[in-house]
């Protein structure tokens, strides 16, 4: 059981790893990096929403906090973004614990609305906060390329490798949690908060753990994103757009499964990057229109996402086989 679940994952990971070398096209490599970042964010989001069933529409907040923390440290104090990444993870985890504890008193839609509000509040805070350059945002000072400064100007491959590593780490963490006690507890909470409590699971604490791990991973991707784009402002980082992208791609791929975000991101990110390349500024939003249509189709016919459709098909085939064997 365990073996058959791991091996397709390894194949997917290997394929992703060789892709930028097979097709050494800058646009393609850029698309891959963005793909990895969003697939990783999807994995992070999946922990709290897919496993624990607490819908968060505010993950842009943790992503943005990660990006801002490392950028401020680098911009004001010339501290390496790697250190910044760790500090960002710490800050984001703390913020997640602090803000989601009261939010967990809310259930269902109300929790989702509260998380959306958290992202919006964070955005407004950063817009009017002079120390972090407010609404103008920060141009990250360009320095010589090196691993320590997490800046690479001649090739996208190093960014790809870093994104890949972070992505693999988030997969490993998601996989570890899914296979261990915590994964079962989270799923129990998702199925029925009351029943989970009645068998003695401290539901608040486990939801909190899931949220903190999720926020930590999101923050790490935030730092990478900032170092990759080399410019940050509150509007792009804390936007509902980013929160929703994370939600949409995971839902399309399949909620509560480590493959879900990979499949979803593999569809959404090329769609958005290539429509942007083909149509330029005028094409803005076309990807989301197409994606929205896909979501509608998936929600109507297979609410468990693309992955759910696959599983169903396999089950039907197996069922047919069993029927034959019995006859």
């Amino acid at each position: 059981m365990k073996k058959s679940k791991i091996s397709p994952l390894i194949i997917i990971l290997l394929v992703i790893l060789v892709l930028p070398f097979i097709k050494a096209d800058i646009n393609f490599q850029h698309m891959l990096i963005i793909f990895l970042i969003f697939a990783g964010l999807g994995e992070a989001w999946n922990l709290i929403t897919g496993f624990a069933g607490q819908t968060s529409f505010g993950h842009a907040a943790f992503f943005g906090i990660g990006a801002y923390t490392s950028t401020i440290l680098f911009y004001k104090f010339s501290i390496s973004p790697w250190v910044g990444m760790l500090v960002g993870i710490a800050v984001s985890t703390l913020v997640a614990a602090f803000v989601s504890y009261p939010c967990f008193k809310l259930k269902g839609h109300y929790f989702a609305i509260a998380t959306m509000a958290i992202a919006e509040i964070t955005k407004q805070l950063f817009i009017s906060w002079d120390y972090v350059e407010g609404a103008t945002g920060i141009m990250i000072p360009i320095v010589d390329e090196s691993l320590a400064s997490m800046q690479f100007h001649t090739s996208k491959i190093p960014y790809f490798i870093i994104a890949y590593c972070l992505f693999v780490i988030s997969i490993l963490i998601a996989n570890y949690i899914e296979k261990n006690r915590m994964g079962f507890y989270l799923k129990a909470i998702r199925e029925s908060n009351e029943a989970a409590e009645s068998i003695g699971i401290n539901t608040t604490v486990y939801k909190l753990y899931a949220m903190m791990v999720s926020a930590a991973l999101s923050a790490a991707f935030g730092t990478l994103y900032a170092q990759y784009i080399l410019y940050i402002d509150p509007f792009m980082l804390f936007s509902l757009d980013i929160s929703m992208k994370i939600v949409l791609l995971t839902v399309l791929g399949g909620l509560g499964n480590i493959y879900g975000p990979i499949i979803g991101a593999a569809i959404l990110i090329p769609l958005s990057e290539y429509t942007r390349i083909f149509f330029g500024g005028t094409g803005k939003g076309i990807d989301l229109i197409i994606f929205g249509a896909l979501i509608v189709v998936v929600a109507c016919f297979e609410p468990r996402g693309i992955l759910g459709a696959f599983k169903k098909k396999r089950k039907v085939e197996r069922g047919a086989y069993d029927a034959k064997a019995n006859a």
Binding site: F184, Y185, K187, A188, E191, S192, E194, A195, A196, S198, I199, I201
Partner: peptide
């Protein structure tokens, strides 16, 4: 309030 998507065994183990 059983955990409907989980197996009987997993329900018990929880």
């Amino acid at each position: 309030h059983v955990f409907s998507k989980m197996s009987v065994r997993d329900n018990l183990l929880l």
